[in-house]
Structures are given as structure tokens and as C-alpha cells.
């Protein structure tokens, strides 16, 4: 049986995520690695946030925990006032299924399903999905939608992955190095898609990257180092993805 993930009345309509003293330690004793050292953070609904930082700074760990993929060692994380850190596996699964879209560096498409079917994979189980065609159209894929991943370019595959992530009309979209495996032109077009989705569907977008240039896209940029937030910058001059170079 799956527990329905209920969204409680919201204290703050505007807040998508809030973490208090979020801590993650891998291993024990001398071998312990402190990935997160008490992170306090708030992310508003509908904003694009870029998490910047070097490898090992803890940004992916944070994304995993608030994405419902990993458990915190200490501290609390809320999603719209619902305490993620208290949830069991089936509640977290429900949370991911209903609210979260993921985009990965290596796309993680199912090689045995076509582009269309990869999207359909998610719409079959989502609560209020859009049509797979519409999702694919949103990312600019009209043709080749019945091709298999192996027949698509890297950029096309990443667009399928984004279509798959947005087809369920998620509340938040988590992107872990979404342009990491792409050339700059393709990368730009992927960022454009993310921006479009954010604008059209009011989806909260959280992008983890160490490509500083991506930050131009963000409403806010959170700098990560040594398992904690170093600084948070509000981006007054949001750039169009076309202007971004790296």
C-alpha cells in the first residue's frame, strides 16, 4: 500500500523548501565524511535557484536529500511545510512521484524505450500529467520522438530527459549538472528549455552545477563550499540562456 502524500496547509505559500541544520555524515569514526554541516536554507516556489560549488562541496548531497533520494543524518528539511526528513521510503517515493522531476548529467533514459515512451513511462503513473507529445513539444522535440536513445544526440537525449521530468507537471525540478555532458550550444538550448518550463508552469527549478556561467539564468545563486552555504546572491540581471557562454 502506498501512503498518499498529503500536503498540509501552508504556513508560507511561497516557500518550496526549507532546511534547518541539515547534516549528512557518511561513514563513522575517523573515516567519517561530513558532506553537509548544518545547512539552513529557504527556496521559494517558482524561482530558479542555481547551486554553485566545487566537487565535494555537498551540493549534490543537499539535492539528494530534498529530492527525497537520501536520508539526512541530522536536522530537518521541509517541502511546503511537510517534513521530508521524517518520511519513510514509501512516502518519499510518493513525494518523488507526485512532485519532483529529475534531470541528470547522463540523462538516465531507459535505452529500451523510445523518446515518446520514456516520457510515457512517467505519465502512466503521474497524478495530473500532460500529454507526452506536449511535453516533448515543450522541449522542442517534434520529430524523432519514436527514436530510441541510441539514435538520438546527447542534446536530444537531455531534452527527452527534461520532457520526462516535466511531463508530470512537477512542483519542483531538480537538475544535477544538466549541461555537464553537452557542448555549449546544446547546453544553452537545454537551459532555455528549463527557463521556459519555469515560466510557463511556474515550476521551481533547482540546478546543481559547477559551471558558474549557468548562474546567469538564476533568480538566486547559492554558493556551496565544505558542506555549507557560503553566500547567497540575488541575481538582479537575469540573463537569457542565449547570452550565456562557458
Amino acid at each position: 500500500m502506498q501512503e498518499e502524500f498529503e500536503i498540509n496547509s501552508m504556513e508560507n505559500e511561497n516557500l518550496a523548501f526549507k532546511t534547518v541544520g541539515l547534516t549528512k555524515v557518511y561513514g563513522e569514526g575517523v573515516a567519517a565524511v561530513h558532506a553537509l554541516r548544518g545547512v539552513d536554507l529557504e527556496i521559494k516556489s517558482g524561482e530558479i535557484v542555481v547551486l554553485l560549488g566545487p566537487s565535494g562541496s555537498g551540493k549534490s548531497t543537499l539535492l539528494n536529500i530534498i529530492g527525497g533520494l537520501d536520508q539526512a543524518t541530522d536536522g530537518v528539511a521541509y517541502f511546503q511545510n511537510q517534513e521530508l526528513t521524517k518520511m519513510g521510503d514509501s512516502q518519499l517515493t510518493r513525494y518523488r512521484r507526485d512532485h519532483v522531476g529529475f534531470v541528470f548529467q547522463f540523462y538516465n533514459l531507459m535505452p529500451s524505450l523510445t523518446a515518446f515512451e520514456n516520457v510515457e513511462l512517467v505519465t502512466e503513473i503521474a497524478r495530473k500529467p500532460m500529454q507526452p507529445d506536449d511535453a516533448l513539444a515543450l522541449v522542442g522535440l517534434h520529430e524523432r520522438i519514436h527514436h530510441f536513445p541510441a539514435q538520438l544526440s546527447g542534446g536530444e537525449q537531455q531534452r527527452v530527459a527534461i520532457a520526462r521530468a516535466i511531463a508530470k507537471q512537477p512542483t519542483v525540478l531538480f537538475c544535477d549538472e544538466p549541461t555537464g555532458a553537452l557542448d555549449s550550444a546544446t547546453g544553452r538550448s537545454v537551459l532555455k528549455v528549463l527557463k521556459d518550463v519555469n515560466e510557463r508552469l511556474q515550476t521551481t527549478v533547482l540546478i546543481v552545477t559547477h559551471a558558474a556561467a549557468t548562474a546567469g539564468l538564476a533568480d538566486r545563486v547559492i554558493h556551496f563550499a565544505d558542506g555549507n552555504v557560503r553566500k547567497v546572491l540575488v541575481n538582479d540581471h537575469k540573463m537569457d540562456p542565449e547570452e550565456i557562454t562557458w
Binding site: Q2, T93, R96, R97, F102
Partner: peptide, 13 residues
Amino acid sequence: RDLASLRVLGFTR
């Protein structure tokens, strides 16, 4: 890896 991806996408165990 495929199984892990499915779990990420919100599929139950």
C-alpha cells in the same frame, strides 16, 4: 542503474 532511475522517477520498489 535502470532500477535506480525508476526509483528516482517515483516508481515504488
